[in-house]
Write a protein that binds this DNA or RNA. Structure first.
Length: 485
RNA sequence: GGCGCGUUCGUCUAGAGGCUUAGGACGCUGCCCUCUCAAGGCAGAGAUCACGGGUUCGAAUCCCGUACGCGCUACCA
């Protein structure tokens, strides 16, 4: 019986960072759990000692926390079914491996690596699929006992009975069927006494009462091995869901070689966790409608495994960028403020002091024009310092022969103002233009250029109001002196 | 090679036999708005639903085959 409240796990191996594909797997697990009032468990599959990476677990946990995928049980957090690090559960795996040997569902194998590669090469040369030949299955009790006593290197292998149909249900793919003859006598316990993924995974999922196994499609071919193990141990199988893969542009499995794949990379580039999550949830899932902008709580609400796609999705950044911009735009100014301050602290303006009111005004003015927090600085540096140069294109296009004269006149008018409002700047400019028998645009464009150094940006009067009268006049005078056609 | 899984605009996708002249989003183009750039609105280009058979009055949707792609095929996970 599947318990009423599902229990799912994200079970990465600590390779050093959280892969975006892993993030999506974790997210789907998390969403499924939360959608069903279930539990989301983090388990570290560190059974390969050769691939151990210092600090990897901490990185993983940190990345998950950053993304907001809080787990209910796991390393450092604890829980009823710990420990949650497989390397701390070795005796448990041994116990079940022994039980399998007892039941003749597994056996000791003493074959050397040389013999193994030899038979494998042979089989491949003849066009067969490579499979262990069950040589050690036929060792006598005495031989086994002897070799064990001599402490000969050995592994424990699964004893797969051939010619049996192994069928299991997968929520994403429906019924999947394998012939047991194509399944190798998989190693369960390695010669270093560590378990392989297959054993550890099945044992832990059972002991941790995992009800739904939600993982990447690369595991689909291994699933029948796991099913055989559940059956051999007399355990109920969990429900499987094999997720479509995240792909490179060439449709191969998303890899490090072809771009950034770690969550940390995207975080460092300034992507919002909301956007990354939103982007990744759409790569393989859709509620069945046109909704594409999601907050985490909305995802929880709408998620279901039945709506997960079957085919892989190319991880291409176009949509991520637009989602990032949209999430950024929808963030309240109060949340944006500390982010901008942090960004400033890392910029060339780190020693300048800007008060919060000022920054809030900048945020308001630039909000619709940025895709990343750093854009507040990069796209409108003129809020932080006077322009050092003037865009050539814009000068060519907007600076006319009468510009300097008009600006001079404007400077003298602005100079008379006291605490000017946005409207004051606008009214005076319009009046000045009128007096010279020209349209406001004739003045607005060169003023914008003078004050910002560029041709685009927020409304001109917003800019003037934000930088203030003193700065405005200073910049206008500087432009009058420096811009030549 | 074997086994498994997949295949709808460039990309992510909607589609559960008639609602489909295949819808949306990103990107692209144009227009509107406008002091500029964005945002927003509107419009457009873009998919013979991999191909071939079949089932059916009717198929992107069901079945079979083929092709192509991917995954797995380790004492890695």
């Amino acid at each position: 019986m599947i318990s009423e409240f599902p229990r799912v796990r994200f079970a990465p191996s600590p390779t050093g960072y959280l892969h975006v594909g892993g993030l999506r797997t974790a997210l789907y697990n998390y969403l499924f759990a939360k959608n069903n009032n279930g539990s989301f468990i983090l388990r570290i599959e560190d059974t390969d000692r050769n691939r151990y990476v210092e600090g990897a677990v901490e990185n993983l946990i940190q990345a998950l926390r950053w993304a907001g995928l809080e787990f209910d049980e796991g390393p450092s957090k604890g829980g009823e079914f710990g420990p949650y690090m497989q390397s701390e559960r070795l005796d448990i795996y041994k116990k079940y491996a022994d039980e399998l040997i007892e039941k003749k569902k597994a056996y000791y194998c003493f074959c050397s690596a040389e013999r193994l590669t030899q038979i494998r090469d042979e089989q491949q040369k003849q066009g067969f699929q490579s499979k262990y030949d069950k040589h050690c299955l036929h060792l006598s009790e005495n031989e086994i006992k002897q070799k064990l006593e001599n402490n000969e290197p050995r592994v424990i292998r699964m004893n797969v009975e051939p010619n049996i149909k192994v069928v299991f249900d997968d929520i994403v793919r429906g019924a999947v069927e394998f012939d047991s003859s194509v399944i190798d006598d998989q190693i369960l316990i390695k010669s270093d006494q560590y378990p392989t993924y297959h054993l550890a995974n099945v044992v832990d999922d059972h002991l941790m009462k995992i009800t739904h196994v939600i993982r990447g499609e690369e595991w689909l071919s291994s699933a029948p091995k796991h099913v055989i193990l559940y059956d051999a141990l007399g355990w109920e199988r969990p429900v499987f869901s094999h997720l479509p893969l995240l792909l490179n542009a060439d449709r191969s499995k998303l890899s490090k070689r072809q771009g950034d794949v770690s969550v940390e990379d995207y975080r460092a580039k300034g992507y919002l966790k909301e956007a990354l999550l939103n982007f990744v949830v759409l790569l393989g899932w859709n509620a069945g409608d046109d909704k594409e902008f999601y907050y985490l709580n909305e995802m929880i609400e709408s998620f279901s495994l039945e709506k997960v796609n079957k085919s892989g999705a190319i991880f291409s950044l176009g949509k991520l960028n637009s989602l990032n911009a949209e999430h950024l735009r929808k963030k309240p100014d109060a949340e944006l403020l500390p982010m901008l301050k942090e960004e400033l602290a890392q910029s060339r303006y780190k020693d300048f002091l800007f008060d919060e009111d000022y920054l809030l005004k900048v945020i308001e003015a630039m909000k619709e024009r940025v895709s990343f927090v750093k854009d507040y600085i990069e796209k409108s540096p003129y809020f932080f310092e006077a322009p050092l140069e003037y865009e050539e294109e814009t000068v060519k296009k907007r600076w006319k022969e009468d510009s300097a004269t008009l600006l001079k006149k404007l400077v003298s008018e602005y100079d008379k103002l006291e605490n000017p409002s946005k409207e004051d700047y606008e009214n005076i400019l319009k009046k000045t233009a009128e007096e010279h028998g020209t349209g406001a645009a004739r003045l607005i464009h060169p003023v914008r250029l003078a004050v910002s150094g560029m041709g685009g940006g927020p409304g001109l009067f917003d800019i003037l109001y934000i930088i203030g009268k003193k700065e405005t006049i200073k910049r206008l005078n500087r432009a009058i002196e420096n811009i030549r056609i």
